[in-house]
Computed example of a mutant assay.
Amino acid sequence: MISEATYINELYTNSKGTTYQCDRSARIMVEFAGYKMAFRINDFLNFKQKVDNVDLHAMIFNLSDEYDFEVIEAPQANLSLKLTLCDLVHLRELLEGTKFMLELNSLLYERIYNVPAYV
């Protein structure tokens, strides 16, 4: 019997989290700062866009307490993440690295097998 671990491949890691790709469920799994989330590829890209749309400049320069953190909804994972500025920077890096690895894997698959892959 093949263990489930053989279907899970690490995509990217930074100091705050790790992302994996599950071939069995076709999901991207994100472990970040104690949160665990699983996304289909389109949901992952939408979540990444939400994180990228947060105005870090406003968080840095606004002294109001409401800019100390940002709440990001991940409805696909049934989570609301309350993130500080540093958390957002680390999460952006993690998601960007993951997207790069997905694109790289897709490109390699296309070149090796001469079959278009979709990411």
Rank of each mutant, 00 (worst) to 15 (best):
E103D: 12
D43A: 13
F44A: 09
R40P: 01
F47Q: 04
L85S: 01
K50S: 15
N105M: 07
N78F: 12
Y113N: 10
G97S: 13
E96M: 03
Q21D: 08
E10T: 12
V119G: 00
K50N: 12
E70R: 12
L95C: 07
S3G: 13
L45V: 09
S80M: 07
N46R: 14
E110D: 07
K16Q: 06
Y12V: 07
Y67F: 13
R24H: 11
E10P: 06
L83V: 08
I28S: 09
S15Y: 06
D23V: 03
G34K: 02
M29G: 03
Q49C: 08
Q49I: 01
M1R: 04
I28P: 04
M1F: 10
K48T: 09
V89T: 04
H90A: 14
G34I: 15
L94T: 01
S64M: 00
L11H: 05
R40W: 13
Y7A: 10
Y20K: 14
K99A: 12
I112L: 08
V119Y: 14
A5W: 02
R40G: 11
F61V: 03
I72Y: 02
Y7S: 12
L88P: 04
N62Q: 03
I60W: 05
Q76S: 09
K48F: 02
N78G: 01
I8R: 09
A38D: 15
F69A: 11
H90E: 14
H57C: 06
L45E: 14
Y20M: 13
G34E: 13
K36S: 09
K82G: 02
T6V: 14
L45I: 07
M59F: 01
E93S: 05
D23E: 12
Y7T: 14
K82P: 00
Y118M: 07
I60N: 01
L11D: 09
D55T: 00
A26V: 12
T13S: 15
F44K: 03
F39V: 05
V30P: 13
M37E: 07
Q21A: 13
M1Q: 00
Y113M: 00
R111Q: 10
N14K: 14
V30F: 14
E66K: 11
E66D: 14
T18C: 06
K36N: 05
Y109I: 01
K48E: 08
L63A: 09
N62R: 02
H90W: 14
T84I: 08
K50W: 02
V115W: 01
Y7N: 13
A38F: 11
G17M: 02
T13N: 13
K82R: 12
N14L: 06
Y12Q: 04
L83W: 01
Y113H: 14
R40D: 14
K16H: 04
S15R: 09
A58L: 07
N46V: 13
L45H: 03
E4N: 02
A33F: 11
M1L: 05
T13R: 15
D55C: 04
L102H: 05
K50C: 10
C22F: 09
V115Q: 08
T84Q: 03
L56T: 03
S106G: 13
E66F: 08
S15P: 09
M37R: 08
R24A: 07
G34W: 10
I2M: 05
D55S: 04
C22L: 05
Q76N: 02
L95E: 00
